[in-house]
Design a protein around this nucleic acid. Sequence first.
DNA 1: AATAAAATGATTCATGTGTTGCTTTCGCGC
DNA 2: GCGCGAAAGCAACACATGAATCATTTTATT
Lengths: 295, 295
Amino acid sequence: MPPGDPLREQLIAQFDGLSGQLQQAARYLLEHPNEVALVSMRELARHAGVQPATMTRLAKALGFEGYNALRARYAEALRHERDGFADKARRAGSSKIADGDERAANLLRKTSAQLLSLCDPEPLMQLNAMAKRLAKARKVYVVGLRSSHVVAWHFHYVMSLLGERSIHLDGPAGTGGDALMRATKNDVLLVVSIQPYTADSLVLAKRAADQGVTIVSITDSAVSPLAGISRHAVLCPTESDSFFHTLVPALALSEALCALLADTDRAATLDALQRADEHHAALNTYATLPPWRHC
Amino acid sequence: MPPGDPLREQLIAQFDGLSGQLQQAARYLLEHPNEVALVSMRELARHAGVQPATMTRLAKALGFEGYNALRARYAEALRHERDGFADKARRAGSSKIADGDERAANLLRKTSAQLLSLCDPEPLMQLNAMAKRLAKARKVYVVGLRSSHVVAWHFHYVMSLLGERSIHLDGPAGTGGDALMRATKNDVLLVVSIQPYTADSLVLAKRAADQGVTIVSITDSAVSPLAGISRHAVLCPTESDSFFHTLVPALALSEALCALLADTDRAATLDALQRADEHHAALNTYATLPPWRHC
DNA sequence: AATAAAATGATTCATGTGTTGCTTTCGCGC
DNA sequence: GCGCGAAAGCAACACATGAATCATTTTATT
């Protein structure tokens, strides 16, 4: 559909070689590219003032297998128009890549696009609001079970470098939720859960909500069980071509959240990192020095 | 399709009153609004993991005459979104994006680009080679400490769904590395470590290498201490504008690795997932069903 | 525990779809 | 005027689609 689209160019290039009815059909495609995928061929033909068969013939004249192939091409253009970079991304990996490499490349490209989709105004707004709410909490409890453990743990780990406000609800022998008993109305519970939602997470969140604790969540849908009870919910895509859902967008959100929180009090952050640095230096935790030396 | 769309709101509002299959269908509509008008009802139902009839029922539950009316509504939204797209792009830089929004967007965009950079031939090749090596290992030991715990744990979690070849070197009271004592030359140790490299990880890797265990690693540099002793090393970017290094690319690599491994024996994978599914169903682990039902 | 009610799955059906082969029309040189 | 070839219209077909119906399972209620 955009002026630079290769199909559009082809249509224009071949136009003069087409004849009568084909031209009329082609003209309609050029002028109403978005209609193509949204209505049936017969209806499209009616609008274009052309016989249905002409559309089939045009498709073949353009080198497509049949009309459906042409239609699919327009549908694809519609899907990816929002992010015009999609073509760029697709072309990027077009060089000589091996059989199995293509599989991995597709997974990574798709995930990359999902991260970009998080830059839409809506998730950004929620993320920012969540950061503000977390910043003024007395304590921040964090829970994320099973696959979501990845995100919850990472959030807690980073926050624990910055202070002692974060409490990870993840103890052995099922004691994970116990710390919540001391939660107050000034506290916030960050719940991370994506489909399939772990039952324990939901129970814990519900209990906390009843206690008056503010719930914020990183989850995957506006109709997630968490979205209803959350003060703020950031929605992240999780779809993947593999058999499990991807956690990469959720983790990226967690990192962004941590960055925003660290920004709210730069002085305190630097001070905390200084202490952490000294601590780890004394213990020889690291084989090389932490990287925030030169910030 | 936009967050404020009345149909979307209605869908969310009515969601709790819907039942089972209807909810699953509704969820798919919410998460893939642009697909609705672009594919047939039956195909949509397949993607949503739902019977075709369910889509008809959902349409009527939402007050539409039939599915076609619903579909027309989505088609209209698609048409209008594109109209609105023009001026949205026009005032893109100007409008109300809060200060913190830009910060988060920058982080996410940068991370997204880093994922794309993993689609270069070099990392893909390494990743594929690593997957092949892991596929024929007797046991796969996994270690990743501190921030890298995120990646190591995720890899182990997914692999544990697929079988019992994976062993996570992460026990309490410093016993994490003990399992390595039983490692043989037929085993592989996957080490995840980025700067600053945790000393314990390196010690463990060195010991394993001396035992004759094959080392593969996800790390951040060709001159990482791990790269030298690794049979295969996938390098991932970790740079971030925040004070900590990003783990998102490393996690994405882990996911891709898992997908490649799952692909090597599809039958076994599906069988293992079936078992996992039954297990969790019996225990009521999840509040909703795992998503791989309809693959 | 038994029954009713609702939800889900499977089957069937009428309709609309894209396609194809055939007929008709049109343009053009002889 | 007459054939000739390409383009355009037409109608029938095979097939997929959305919807309606009935059977089965699940869930709730008494």
